[in-house]
């Protein structure tokens, strides 16, 4: 069995990439494959609590974060020090890593998929 990292780096509502990346994570988890997530760049916007996407924006992907525990997806990593990410209005389930940890993280997985 391979340990997979799904790396989201694109804006959640500007394309289907985040949605399809998360779908892949859910399927891997459903098939009992160990999978972690990490977020960077525009995908960090996914963490903000204040999103109210309309039907045109797509499904509310932020809501899915709280459901990840039911899929046994326990680790969602971000890099520390995103000053614009206000901890009072963003999802608390993330594990912030310093830049060294962030870089070594990628080598801990047999496969990394980017969306």
């Amino acid at each position: 069995m391979k340990h997979t990292l799904i790396h989201l780096n694109t804006s959640p509502y500007s394309s289907l990439a985040c949605k399809e990346g998360l779908d892949l994570a859910l399927v891997l988890a459903t098939f009992e494959q160990p999978v972690d997530l990490c977020l960077s760049g525009a995908a960090l916007a996914l963490l903000s609590d204040t999103q109210q996407p309309t039907a045109e924006h797509g499904k509310n992907l932020h809501k899915l974060l709280a459901g990840l525990e039911f899929y046994d997806i326990e680790n969602v990593y971000i890099e520390k020090n995103h000053s614009w990410l206000d901890s009072t209005t963003s999802w608390q389930g993330v594990t912030p890593l310093d830049s060294t940890e962030w870089q070594t993280m990628f080598s801990q997985y047999q496969q990394v998929f980017r969306f």
């Binding site: 391979k2 997979t4 892949l24 891997l28 494959q33 496969q111 998929f113």
Partner: peptide, 20 residues
């Protein structure tokens, strides 16, 4: 095919390479 087929492929090959 469903994404389950991808999971099967993953577990039966040495390496998987993403092209994006």
């Amino acid at each position: 095919e469903g994404l389950g087929t991808l999971v099967d492929l993953m577990n039966t090959t040495n390496k998987i390479i993403q092209f994006r």
